[in-house]
């Protein structure tokens, strides 16, 4: 029994090691790929402009918004910006464009490789151009934390990470829906991205809207909950963890559904 347990752990480690190596390999390839298009890095940095415009609006409106200081609003916007940079880095945009431009046959080819096809899809769409921007936002976050004397614990960092994972899994579910229903479902992704624009707005978590955007379309996990975790920590961090487990189950169900549907009609 003990030996079997050890064997499972050994196999899991082997698998993790393989995936780390594969992801590193994808990342290396993406860097080589974008070496041909160095201007992309400048472009990516330019996406800071909408972030700055949003801050500008908050500055104008700060006095008229009750219960939220400019600092709260800025942190909210920053957490949203970090997540959207991670979305870009992880190739979500590229994957959508890939779905738009390729037919199912190309996905069929990925299914014949000994690796998860979703990881493969994201791997070939990694966008290293986002790294400078991510560094900029993270530095801004660190400056913000130091200036505002926010005490950071491991729990709050882990909480933020889990909160982001909830949103990534949510996007993963949408990808599964696209795999299952083909191109017809792509506008769903753009709808979600449109809705994402409200993620960095000061929503009251206990309001009806807050509840809907937490449990049904988990948008609050994109900016609101991560920014609150940094201030309040514990409970919300735990909540993010529980939601991660729930979303993981939902994602795995959608993935199975997508693959089953693909196998029935695919290619």
């Amino acid at each position: 029994m003990k030996l079997k347990g050890l064997e499972i752990i050994r196999k899991s480690f082997k698998k993790i090691k393989k995936y780390v190596k594969v992801l590193a390999s994808f990342f290396r390839a993406s860097i080589i790929r974008y070496n041909n298009y160095k201007i992309e890095y400048i472009y990516s940095l330019s996406t800071i402009i909408p972030f700055l415009i949003t801050l500008f609006f908050w500055k104008i409106l700060e006095d008229s918004i009750e219960g939220w200081s400019f600092n709260d609003l800025a942190l909210l916007t920053l957490m949203g910006a970090i997540l959207s940079t991670l979305i870009e880095l992880g190739g979500f945009w590229g994957v959508m464009l890939w779905f738009d431009r390729n037919d199912r046959g190309n996905l069929a080819l990925m299914i014949t490789k000994p690796i998860n096809p979703l990881i493969y899809l994201h791997g070939i769409n990694f966008f290293p151009g986002s790294i400078p921007k991510l560094i900029f936002y993270l530095m801004l976050l660190i400056t913000f934390i130091i200036q505002n004397n926010i005490s950071i614990s491991i729990l709050s960092v882990v909480g933020v990470v889990f909160s982001y994972i909830v949103f990534f899994l949510f996007l993963g579910i949408i990808e599964c829906i696209i795999i299952a229903f083909d191109k017809a479902a792509i506008p769903l992704f753009y709808t979600i991205i449109d809705i994402f624009k409200i993620a960095d707005k000061p929503i009251d978590l206990s309001s009806v809207l807050g509840v809907v955007l937490t449990f049904f379309v988990p948008l609050t996990f994109a900016a609101l909950i991560p920014s609150k975790i940094l201030y309040e920590g514990r409970e919300l961090a735990l909540f993010s963890f529980i939601m991660t487990v729930v979303m993981l189950i939902m994602f795995s169900l959608s993935y199975r559904f997508a693959m089953k549907r693909f196998e029935a009609v695919g290619g």
Binding site: Y43, S44, P50, G129
Partner: peptide
């Protein structure tokens, strides 16, 4: 001039919306 052309579109759309 750019590779990830969809990104340019997204950023301008974001600015436009704002």
């Amino acid at each position: 001039y750019f590779y990830s052309i969809w990104g340019v579109r997204v950023i301008i759309k974001l600015i436009d919306v704002l």
